[in-house]
Design a protein around this nucleic acid. Sequence first.
DNA 1: TAGATTGTTAATCGATTAACAATC
DNA 2: TAGATTGTTAATCGATTAACAATC
Lengths: 223, 223
Amino acid sequence: MKRNTRVSTAVIRRLPRYYRQLSELQRKGVIRISSSALGKSMGLTASQIRQDLFCFGGFGQQGYGYKVDSLKEQIGEILGINRGHTIVVLGAGNLGRALIENFKFSNNGFQLLAAFDVQERTVGTQIAGVPVYHADTLEEFLKENPVSVGLLTVPKSAAQTMGERLVAAGVHGIWNFTNCEIAFPGEDVVVESVHFSDSLLALNYMISQREDGQEQEDGKDKT
Amino acid sequence: MKRNTRVSTAVIRRLPRYYRQLSELQRKGVIRISSSALGKSMGLTASQIRQDLFCFGGFGQQGYGYKVDSLKEQIGEILGINRGHTIVVLGAGNLGRALIENFKFSNNGFQLLAAFDVQERTVGTQIAGVPVYHADTLEEFLKENPVSVGLLTVPKSAAQTMGERLVAAGVHGIWNFTNCEIAFPGEDVVVESVHFSDSLLALNYMISQREDGQEQEDGKDKT
DNA sequence: TAGATTGTTAATCGATTAACAATC
DNA sequence: TAGATTGTTAATCGATTAACAATC
């Protein structure tokens, strides 16, 4: 029944959206949902949803649809929610602090263990209960505590070096919030980047296109 | 020469990456680059780069390649860097504050005009030179100042309503940092979302896959 | 049972890659 | 000129959509 012959990145990127939408439905008390209803609510076709889920096995019941609770649970399982992953934050500046204080790491399957910084002012303190250690002690900490992912919110200039230190110490995932590309050729590590800049530029393109369309319409109106 | 017959989102998402890479090359003093060299540095094929640029016109010289400066400039133009767009921040909490203080809006073609919040403590203050007004005065402000994009860092519960107020007041772009889907059916507005959670879940999936592969290899070794 | 909806294969569509003439 | 590299069309590949038998 299970397929799983190399799941495409397009599918992987949709899994978290399914998970989010199913959580929302669960919250609303919805018990079952069909692929067509789920598709409509997410702007996807029923076919695509069934095809996506087909990558991992049969989660539904013919003639009935999908049970919201169990589908959510199973997608969570696929995503790795219950694997006991751990994470540390590198760079407790503005953004690092904001993420530590507001982002629900545990909702996404991660236990936040610690933060690291070089500022004398912040080292030794706690942010929302999370201890901030000096970056010099990173390797020491990683030796004692198995860490799955390092979250990079350090300055651009320190990103690559800090990443290399993490990878050298056995971290296999990097969540990169610095506005630069980092790479570790030959290393067995997954890099996932959040590029604010790319996102805003894409938005800039889209609203600019919209404006141009507007102009054309204006032109049409005048003739 | 110019094509531009509906540029696919795949291309649109690559444009900011080109722009970023070209800026980096410019910084390093590189004058010219071929599609194959640019491709290699970004993990794309030369074909893809030429095909992408072909959507917008001929920016290169045969037998020579592309001039870094002018290609960067032209991609910037396509993205809308020089259109005098403006932006306001809704929600001056931790994340909003971090973005106001650290994110270079002007590098992406936006002038940051103001922030809005409801906290008595922050209303009336400035963050990195940006005034914080009370959210009640949003409509008043938008009447006086043309705003292209509203950046949403409000709590999840306020996201949709705040978005609707922006759209009603004539804002055509929403940069959504809340962890929920917002939609404005029938409205002429572009929504670009940054979902931290989706990103971390995708990373979770990828490192979990890696671990499973590891296990299999371990198994193989033992037999 | 009849109706609904999935699981799964086949068809279509779109995006990426390859090829090569044009030309700097 | 010869060599290099683009612009652009054609071929391939992969992802989405359609179709429908299986079955709840």
